[in-house]
Computed example of a mutant assay.
Amino acid sequence: MLNFRDANFNDKPKLLALEQALIEAERPFNKLTKVDATYHDLDALISVADTLFLVGEIDGQIVATGYVQIRASKTYLQHSHHGYLGFMYVVPQCRGQGLNKKLLEKLIVWGQERGIRDFYLEVYTQNNVAIKAYEKVGFTSSVVEMKLTL
């Protein structure tokens, strides 16, 4: 049975391993990713007040992660704050079971309870599986980041 709970400092070793699995899964989409890369400040995600960092467990094992963080929006937007979603990861053996959707729903509800109506996340344009999963929840593309490497 799937259980969601707040991430805590005791989870850090497993979260670090899952972060590395996420980085390895995304490395084909960005060849410039460092070998010793990290994406997140786990201590801050676990302890910052305007952040909900959840883990999903099955039989006591963490199989899914994700957070929502309330952030200030760009001044030209109508909304002053938004929810930023990150570290969205489900272990390969548990994919296709709707865990990511359930996790997203919990994170979004938490944000809505705090007055947030706009949510953003980042996904590589070539990561079609993730894009389709986010579109199922209602996300649409809004900006494409472009880069030039010389």
Results as ranks from 00 to 15, higher is better:
77 L>F: 12
108 I>V: 15
92 P>R: 07
39 Y>Q: 12
10 N>G: 13
80 S>R: 13
44 A>R: 14
3 N>H: 13
31 K>C: 04
24 E>T: 11
117 R>M: 10
61 Q>P: 00
50 D>C: 01
76 Y>D: 07
40 H>I: 01
44 A>I: 06
146 M>C: 08
135 E>H: 10
121 L>F: 08
24 E>C: 03
55 V>K: 07
16 L>N: 10
54 L>A: 05
126 Q>I: 02
113 E>R: 12
49 A>L: 06
45 L>M: 12
105 E>A: 14
68 V>M: 13
137 V>S: 03
75 T>A: 09
52 L>A: 07
25 A>I: 00
102 K>P: 00
95 R>H: 05
89 Y>M: 08
33 T>V: 15
66 G>I: 11
49 A>C: 01
146 M>N: 05
135 E>Q: 15
93 Q>Y: 05
61 Q>S: 12
149 T>C: 06
68 V>D: 04
121 L>D: 09
79 H>N: 09
7 A>S: 15
69 Q>N: 14
52 L>I: 09
69 Q>D: 11
73 S>V: 00
39 Y>S: 11
138 G>W: 09
121 L>V: 10
39 Y>L: 15
112 Q>V: 11
53 F>H: 03
81 H>G: 00
19 E>F: 10
144 V>W: 02
28 P>W: 12
69 Q>F: 03
117 R>W: 06
145 E>F: 12
134 Y>W: 09
100 N>A: 15
144 V>H: 07
60 G>F: 05
40 H>W: 13
37 A>Q: 14
29 F>S: 14
45 L>F: 12
13 P>C: 09
30 N>G: 05
16 L>Q: 14
55 V>D: 02
136 K>R: 15
147 K>N: 11
119 F>W: 07
79 H>C: 09
78 Q>V: 10
54 L>K: 10
115 G>F: 10
2 L>D: 01
84 Y>P: 01
53 F>Y: 13
83 G>F: 13
120 Y>E: 14
142 S>P: 00
11 D>Y: 06
118 D>M: 08
95 R>S: 04
14 K>S: 10
45 L>E: 09
84 Y>Q: 11
139 F>A: 04
62 I>K: 01
110 W>V: 02
117 R>H: 14
99 L>H: 04
